[in-house]
């Protein structure tokens, strides 16, 4: 008996494994039940899927990975800033990924980790948020939205999903910021950075962060933190996007190529 029994929550992966049936219906069960994924014909997908690849040098399933994302709260709301690079192994799969997901006109989320994992579960969350609105005639709070996401992710814990998300939005007439990841963490905070470039982003972010920042200063801090991360971290790059979240909605502030930013910052240094 678990929380599942009280909330009538979805079955967890473990439960799915026991009744594995290789039918077309089971393979694409997520088309009708979006929270249930088909179980593999082996236990422990983390280890055993990796083993399948180990034995075959030719086969490499490299799905898109690698990121720098950040979010912080200050007096004027929340700033989210992200890069746009997706890497599959050494190969840059894309320089134009939109790593900020627009859940509705109040909520935003960032994606780091497995691109497919994040986009799929954000899509599920978006539908859950919309269903909440239709059922309750009011917008879902960020606390509730993140809890829904956390419960879904937690039920897939230890099955190999890879996600690190920062969600921001209006919540009880104020703006708040949550961090969620595939270990099942869900926590509220002031400053978060996620992804392979986060250690670099934190360096700039922590040294420039204070509550009293003006809007312009906050955008620039977010932008600069991501820019420096793209400069140091090979898995991050592309364009830097900055979003501003206030309690009554969000705005896209800027989209700038890293090369343009680099030239601008270099020129500023020489002055």
């Amino acid at each position: 008996m678990a929380l599942n029994d009280i909330l009538k929550h979805m079955p967890s992966v473990g439960d799915m494994l026991s009744d594995y049936k290789s039918t077309e219906e089971m393979d694409f069960i997520n088309l009708s039940q979006n929270k249930v994924l088909s179980a593999p014909p082996y236990s422990n997908p983390v280890e055993n899927l990796a083993k399948l690849h180990e034995n075959n040098d030719n086969i490499k399933i490299n799905f898109d990975h690698g990121t720098t994302t950040l979010g912080f709260i200050y007096q004027g709301g929340v700033v989210l800033a992200v890069d746009s690079r997706a890497t599959g192994g050494q190969y840059i799969g894309s320089q134009s990924v939109r790593k900020v997901v627009e859940i509705n006109d109040l909520l935003l989320g960032t994606l780091a980790g497995g691109a497919a994992d994040c986009t799929y579960w954000y899509r599920v969350l978006t539908s859950e948020c919309r269903l909440y609105e239709l059922r309750n005639k009011k917008k879902i709070s960020l606390a509730a939205a993140t809890k829904i996401m956390n419960n879904i992710i937690y039920s897939y814990k230890n099955s190999g999903l890879s996600m690190g998300m920062i969600l921001a939005g209006g919540d009880m007439n104020q703006v708040s910021l949550y961090y969620l990841d595939s270990d099942g963490t869900r926590t509220m905070g002031k400053v978060f950075s996620v992804g392979s470039g986060s250690i670099f982003a934190y360096g700039v972010l922590d040294s420039g962060y204070k509550w009293e920042l003006t809007d312009e200063q906050a955008y620039e801090l977010g932008r600069r933190s991501i820019y420096h991360a793209t400069h140091r971290d090979a898995y991050s790059g592309g364009t830097v996007r900055v979003y501003h979240v206030k309690k009554d909605g969000w705005n896209l502030i800027s989209e700038e190529d890293c090369l343009d930013l680099h030239r601008r910052y270099e020129a500023e240094k020489k002055k």
Binding site: A2, L3, Y154, K157, D183, G184, T185
Partner: peptide, 12 residues
Amino acid sequence: GDQGDTVQFVEY
């Protein structure tokens, strides 16, 4: 302990 487990277990 484990980040996800602590919250989930204590809440339960």
